[in-house]
Design a protein around this nucleic acid. Sequence first.
RNA 1: GGGCGGUUAGCUCAGCGGUUAGAGCGCCUCGUUUACACCGAGGAUGUCACAGGUUCGAAUCCUGUACCGCCCACCA
Length: 911
Amino acid sequence: MASDRGEEAELAKAYRPVDVEPGIFQRWLDADVFNPDGKGSRADWSKQPFVVIQPPPNVTGSLHLGHAQRSTVEDIMTRHARMQGRPSLFLPGLDHASIAAQYVLDKRLATKGETRQSLGRDKYLEAMWEFVRETRETILSQQRSVGASLDMSRLRFTMDEVSAAAVREAFVRLFREGLAYRTEALIHWCPGCRTSVSDLEVVPKETTGSLWTMRYHLVDESTGAADPDAWIAVATTRPETLLGDTAVAVNPDDPRYTALIGRQALVPFVNRPVPIIADSVVEMGFGTGAVKITPAHDQNDYDTGKRHGLPMITVLDDTAHINENGAQYAGLDRFEARKQIVAALEGQGDLESIKAHEMMLGRCQRSDDVVEPRLKTQWFIRVAPLAAAALEATRSGKTQILPERFVKVWEHWMTEMRDWNVSRQLWWGHRIPAWYCPDGHTTVTADPAGPPACEVCSRPVAELRQDDDIFDTWFSSGLWPFSTLGWPQKTRDFERFYPGSVMETAYDIIFFWVARMMMLGIHLTGEAPFHTVYLSGLIRDPYGQKMSKTKGNSVDPLETISEVGADALRFALINGSAPGNDSKLGPEKIENARNFANKLWNVARFVLGAKPGSIPDGATRQLPDREKLGPADRWILSRAAETVAAVDRAMALYGFGDVSQILYEALWNEYCDWGVELAKIRLADESLSASEREATWWTLVDALDTYLRLLHPTMPFVTEAIWDRLPHTAGDPKLLIVADWPIVRSDVMDATAESEVASLIDLVRAVRNARAEAKIEPAAWLPVEVYVPESLGPTFEALRPAIERLSRARPLTRSAGVGAIRQGAEGGLSVIAGDIEAMVRPAAKDEAQEERDRARLERELAEAQGLLAASRARLANEAFTSKAPAAVVDGVRARTAELEELVARLAQRLS
RNA sequence: GGGCGGUUAGCUCAGCGGUUAGAGCGCCUCGUUUACACCGAGGAUGUCACAGGUUCGAAUCCUGUACCGCCCACCA
């Protein structure tokens, strides 16, 4: 393709992404430009490296729109930095996603009649590795199809050896510092996944349950037996846990129960006498005001139990069946046990009532099973000191959170966070490097071979037993920004690329991931892992719902890419979206983006095809000689320079949506609609010298070159394809991806050209408007007389052929004064555009047409008068003139004068 | 229960203290001028949710209200 450069490249009439994109990606790969150390890299190592951190997608996953959007944002930042010459790293990776991967694999095994348990740990892990080998390429290739310029030479997987070493090292350090500890505590248990999960993995869901009110008979103090006539009624949503009850609690201030405090109640079925205790957690107004306390199966009760030193009786096993402590209910599933217990209570007359009850029920994020609080011995990370350091980093500005409104959420959460349970009773993940000896000592080591012996009593390793559990996936994800760079080794990459620049992710994993990276990163490396946290919004369907395959409302990014191309998809995902805001993506938006890609493609076709024959093929691009330029040329160059400045400003604020909008408007409304249209006429103007026509063409090329550079991060494929065919300067690299980001060229900024050309564009618009409103045959050429102020004369003359053609004016005559035009107004269409006045002369007298024109002028007059009145009223307001800034007051004065002038002119035309 | 967003043209959204509130789509009228009908020219459409307040000036800032959405929270 490179060899086509300069030749008359035949381009398809419509932009066809399929013809263009695969080849381009391959060219980038061949040139080795994604790797900042690659042979095609033009990285300037004296500049601050740019490192974007992406959440590594799940190995078993496939691309959805959320990924596509994030990859796009990350890629835009990376490409932008790369073009600025900064060594830029966009590191690809995969997450092993313990629980999610096991969930998927288990389902798969189930179709073959196998289970995790039937295979056993080793076989299961083998199966997992095999599975992961199959799936891992999918998501990576999908990311590439969006155009993500990932440096594949640095691909990392959270289960690779580098990551494993980091996990062990991190854990050992935390353990030695007392920040990792093992204890029995109440944790969330998912009976479906058969593992504990962290607080975050429990999703509370609105559920209609029942509130059962049941009687616990009091223990007769003299006989020690249940008193059939005395009871305390308790309300519960979980009757089956009564098997594990060890108290009944009432509020100490509740007069109804004061007399009962200190007495014993008998738990049904298990016939356990338990104390009636007083605790202020009990709400007097709820239920009966008396609560059964099951410390081993409820967070609240656990706390109450701790406060009162109550026994904790576990009645559920790993599969949520009643265990041996459940008397006759042992072996029953929790819900079956509930049913039977309720029935039994009712049978013995101890069930007072059943009421429907709205409540929040915790379910497993992964399997949707109802999560069971229960006691387990697990490893925890002491979070308070880590969170404090993370908070310090955001408060001091070492790490900035965008958009800012998330800071409050962040602060709140980091302040309230409970210790993090990192043990998982799963197999796919990093096994906890802790060994226990029969004497109860714990030995922890980073050595992959394990410890030689118990570090307390020196028992040989053979007598030690390694912890069966693995770490929560987020523990290894939390090390991602540095484990990927080889930490704890002081590698070259770690030195150069840590800490990262921007961490990009959707706001829904701010706690799961961002918080953990911050805490672990600061603690283990001494530095916050990134300077900026950029939080993206979620992509929703056109109805604002989360997309999901089961709902059938999901847009498949790959399908979209095959239809409209990655560029259009990227543009659609970025345009009109603001950081942290959810955005909706429907077919219209994608179509609009596709149209934009096509527009760009076609204007490039035009420019390439319009090359004057006097310019040899393969000529080097040069900035045209300013002397040879027409006003429209100066205008377009100036507009392009202004656009560079505007894009730079938006980029600095991470306003990628703004960037896309600025470029959309500049390219379509300015460059295509006027720049190219004006240039066409000049290019065909035989009265100009060849060098002048060449200068106009070079201007088009120059501005297009600028726009392509600016647009490249957002739409890498089309821009690369077009740029390839455009003439280049000697210093240009072969590929746009490594070309220099445009600098703001103040030397081509030209305020005079901008305002003069804008005035004449307004004139053309006004003439067109008058003609259309009067319903004049669009194709008709009509004589137009025009008056332009003296100062505009030269520009007007230079653009005369263009104005003629674009406003279909023939002949276009210039009148010496306004008066002359106004005098001959009879039957003509009056046009006022700023300082310029014109008169369009229809071929024949047409009463209806005149009437329509008059109506138009009257409307314009009324409008101008309204505005004038408003302006005058403002100036008449003493408070305004004295208090508003001088510039604003002057602006209104000038505006008023203009309006007065306009009103006078319109009135004169109508008289 | 606490917190955070949102409420702007028929639809989706941008604008977040200063002239006449914008875009895309849709709609209406025209149009095959040799880049583009995935196009061009022109047009219509808004008490910027509501009520107060601050200000010379409010869609924009403050307070409250109403809906909608999300996040956090141990009423069993």
